[in-house]
Simulated scan of single mutants.
Amino acid sequence: MSWTLLLSCLWIIGAKIASMRPSEHKHWPLAYALMPLGVPIVLLAWWEHGAGVAFFVLAIGMVVLRWPVIYLGRRILRLVKGAGDGTA
């Protein structure tokens, strides 16, 4: 196993362990810390193993951080719908 895949597994395990603890802020500070740590791991996976493995690592990261992805998708849809009717 390469170092990149080991890092991605450790990132996932760390995210899951950290998400098990109680939080007043619904784990948003944790998500804000994990997102910038995950981007270099995806880029390293792309560089070392190619696009297929990088997309797999990205998909697993999106499953772990599903609510930020859902909110980003909603925001993009709102912007696209707003731009279509001239109220951007």
Rank of each mutant, 00 (worst) to 15 (best):
Leu5Gln: 09
Leu77Gln: 09
Val63Trp: 04
Ile13Asp: 07
Tyr32His: 11
Leu77Met: 09
Val63Leu: 14
Thr87Lys: 11
His25Leu: 12
Lys81His: 12
Ile41Cys: 03
Ile17Ser: 03
Asp85Phe: 09
Glu24Arg: 14
Tyr71Gln: 08
Val64Ala: 05
Ile70Ser: 05
Arg74Ser: 05
Met20Ala: 14
Val39Lys: 00
Ala54Ile: 03
Leu30Val: 05
His25Gln: 14
Glu24Asp: 14
Pro22Ala: 12
Lys81Trp: 06
Met62Ile: 04
Ile13Val: 15
Leu30Asn: 02
Thr87Ala: 09
His27Ala: 03
Val80Thr: 14
Ala15Asn: 07
Trp3Ser: 15
Ile76Ser: 07
Thr4His: 02
Lys26Leu: 15
Met20Gly: 14
Ile17Cys: 08
Thr87Asn: 12
His49Asn: 06
Val39Phe: 01
Lys81Val: 12
Ala88His: 12
His27Ser: 04
Gly38Cys: 02
Arg75Phe: 10
Leu58Tyr: 13
Trp47Thr: 08
Gly82Asn: 09
Leu30Tyr: 04
Gly73Trp: 03
Arg75Asn: 12
Asp85Gln: 12
Leu72Met: 11
Gly82Arg: 11
Ile76Glu: 13
Ala45Asn: 01
Thr4Arg: 01
Gly84Ala: 14
Val64Ser: 01
Phe55His: 09
Leu43Cys: 07
Ala31Asn: 11
Val64Arg: 01
Ala31Glu: 09
Ala45Thr: 05
Ala33Gly: 06
Thr4Phe: 00
Thr4Trp: 00
Phe56Ile: 11
His49Trp: 02
Val53Cys: 00
Leu44Trp: 09
Met35Arg: 11
